[in-house]
């Protein structure tokens, strides 16, 4: 419905609904799932959406996708209209932890199962599908530990201090550092997720530590790219391992070209597919997991071709 445009199409659809609503409903039989997504102009969310469409087709269910355009208010309204339409289940890709919570509360109160995908709300949904940021950092740091045989000097570029992503990625990285006493965190500093700031920070670290730095873990790919460019310009890249998180297009290209050592891929398609599958299981009263964690994947030159 959302793709059709123009009054003619709308009239045709309205006619269809009046005339054949009951017959199409009984012919299809499959459950209907309402989906409210954070923002379909975000590349990552678009991938979640595509995976949901594919999975729904495979399982023979109908999904109605609404775009909340980053507005939690709009998201709550969308869920209210799903409830009014008496959908069988709702999938919520929350805009905000607090402000999207009423959507979860209302669905639960109406007795409609609701599955949160990718990020959390304060209210507890029927099930949650997503990934753990700690794990991304753990994978990145473990790769560094392996490359350095558990011994060497590491620096860490933090995200914006105090944000959930920064805190969780910091926690994950430190878990690995604690297990590898040979790895020494000689410097850590925020570059606020920003490539230009990361570049200046790396230049300063090069002045301070030079070739004593064996590896840089940047909590996102933007900062990893900044560190990479600074190291290349100082002709030190062949001596320092650089790892980021997120698998953005630039970082994947850099891994492919052998410039960036690794990044960590968050599996949008896996999350979208698992969300639909979980929702369908709940509707069909099959056993389901309340918390489905989709693993991150390490991307290096060996497997970068699988990602795009």
């Amino acid at each position: 419905m959302k793709r059709s445009s123009g009054p003619v199409a709308a009239l045709a659809l309205a006619g269809c609904l009046l005339q054949a609503c009951s017959s199409s409903g009984s012919a299809k039989k499959g459950p209907v799932i309402g989906v409210s997504l954070l923002n379909v102009s975000n590349e990552f969310i678009v991938m979640i959406n595509q995976a949901m469409d594919a999975k729904a087709k495979e399982l023979g269910v109908q999904i109605i996708v609404n775009d909340a355009q980053r507005s939690a208010d709009r998201q709550v309204e969308q869920v209210e209209s799903f409830i009014a339409q008496k959908v069988d289940a709702i999938i919520l890709n929350p805009c905000e932890v607090e402000a999207s919570s009423p959507a979860v509360d209302k669905a639960i109160a109406a007795g409609i199962p609701i599955v949160n995908v990718n990020s959390e709300t304060r209210s507890t949904p029927t099930a949650f599908v997503g990934s753990r940021d700690e794990e991304a950092a753990r994978i990145a740091m473990e790769y560094i530990a392996k490359r350095l045989n558990g011994k060497g000097n590491v620096t860490m570029m933090q995200g914006f201090m105090g944000q959930a992503g920064q805190i969780k990625r910091d926690t994950g990285a430190r878990e690995v550092l604690a297990k590898n006493p040979g790895l020494k965190l000689i410097a850590q500093q925020t570059a606020e997720w920003d490539r230009a700031k990361a570049m200046s920070l790396m230049e300063n670290w090069i002045q301070s530590y030079g070739a004593r730095i064996n590896a840089v873990f940047a909590q996102n790919d933007e900062m990893a790219m900044g560190a990479l460019i600074a190291l290349e310009q100082a002709r030190l890249k062949d001596k320092v391992i650089v790892v980021g998180v997120d698998a953005i297009a630039d970082a994947l290209a850099a891994v492919r070209d052998g410039r960036l050592d690794a990044t960590v891929f968050q599996d949008a398609r896996g999350q979208g597919a698992a969300a639909v599958e979980t929702a369908v299981r709940i509707v069909r009263k099959q056993p389901y997991e309340k918390s489905v964690m989709i693993p991150f994947q390490l991307v290096t030159r060996d497997n970068v071709a699988q990602f795009h």
């Binding site: 201090m161 500093q189 200046s200 300063n204 002045q207």
Partner: peptide, 15 residues
């Protein structure tokens, strides 16, 4: 200030 505090590895909060 920016360069010096990075070189001294002063924590982000103190910076």
């Amino acid at each position: 200030i920016n360069n010096g505090l990075d070189l001294l590895n002063v924590s982000s909060y103190y910076q």
